[in-house]
């Protein structure tokens, strides 16, 4: 290793309080991320989103987060001050969430929202911010950026909204993007476009990408490495192109149980959840 990784997670545990004690959402996971594209895949309740949020310290105060190491570019996220964290969030780490409908401010034009994101982390006047917003909209390949700049979130389509979200997140020129199910609310055709856009922007700017999704084949197409999570633990970590050679029964099961257009089957194989997968690892 020549340089320290962008993100280092070692033995991360996250517990949420419930009436009877604690629910273990993440149970000691470890992985690191350089300036590369990492996919985190798992079903609902696997702890994949919680992991991304723990890294940005966006979990509710009641959550108990413990780790041997939880570092972003050498900064200890667990020990950092709230001011440091504010600079990280939105500044050095961008977060793209599932539905742009809920993450954009409905009463502010798209252009102003991007300009504000830019102003929060750059020095400059209003006009410069607007210029920057326009150029960002061009970068996310919106065809008519001038029109979109002055429209309100409800006037743009879902795919367009997600592009705007991405532009907003790129405004402060972050080192890393966390995309939490960025395309689940979109049509399949738009889905591929958006992911391709994210992939290209990340590669061109040399950022790190953490793509959190439930869709294993989709993620493997756009990432370098894939981490497969189940019940708060990492089941398997493998290069994306070797997905078809996945060894873990859970990964195989996930790939296998999807209906396929090319290979018809009268019945779909279902996943047999091996209780051994739940055992704490090592």
């Amino acid at each position: 290793m020549t340089e320290a990784p962008l993100v280092e997670i070692r033995k991360l545990r996250v517990d949420f309080p419930n009436p009877a004690g604690f629910t273990q959402a993440v149970r000691g996971i470890s992985f690191s991320l350089g300036r590369e594209k990492l996919g985190i895949v798992g079903e609902s309740g696997s702890g994949k989103s919680v992991t991304g949020r723990a890294l940005m310290r966006l979990l509710p105060g009641s959550a108990r987060v413990q780790a041997e190491a939880l570092r972003f570019d050498g900064i200890d996220v667990l020990a950092a001050s709230e001011r440091q964290m504010r600079r990280l969030r939105g500044g050095r780490i961008g977060l793209i969430m599932q539905d742009p409908k809920y993450s954009l401010n409905p009463v502010m034009t798209v252009g102003r929202q991007i300009a504000e994101a830019w102003l929060a982390h750059n020095k400059g006047g209003k006009r410069e911010a607007r210029e920057a917003a326009l150029s960002l909209l061009e970068q996310v390949r919106i065809r008519d950026p001038l029109r979109v700049l002055d429209s309100y979130p409800h006037e743009v389509s879902g795919g367009m909204g997600q592009r705007v979200m991405i532009a907003m997140m790129l405004a402060p020129n972050p080192d890393m993007l966390i995309a939490d199910e960025p395309t689940s609310a979109l049509d399949a055709s738009v889905q591929a476009e958006i992911l391709k856009l994210i992939e290209e922007l990340v590669s061109a700017r040399g950022m790190g990408l953490m793509l959190i999704s439930h869709d294993l084949p989709l993620v493997s197409r756009f990432c370098d490495r894939v981490v497969v999570m189940y019940a708060g633990q990492v089941m398997e970590e493998l290069p994306a192109r070797d997905l078809h050679r996945a060894r873990h029964a859970y990964t195989r099961g996930l790939l296998d149980c999807m209906p396929s257009l090319s290979v018809p089957r009268p019945r779909l194989p279902t996943l047999n959840r091996d209780p051994a997968w739940l055992e704490p690892k090592r």
Binding site: E43, D215, L268
Partner: peptide, 29 residues
């Protein structure tokens, strides 16, 4: 989730068979 989807699709296939149901299925998939 896809694993649950498989179970539900199998269930629907079985019930359709057993009860001779006529179905209309709407999906984007």
């Amino acid at each position: 989730d896809v694993s649950v989807q498989a179970e539900v699709l199998n269930l629907l296939a079985d019930l359709r068979e057993a009860r001779q149901l006529t179905c209309i299925l709407v999906s984007h998939n």
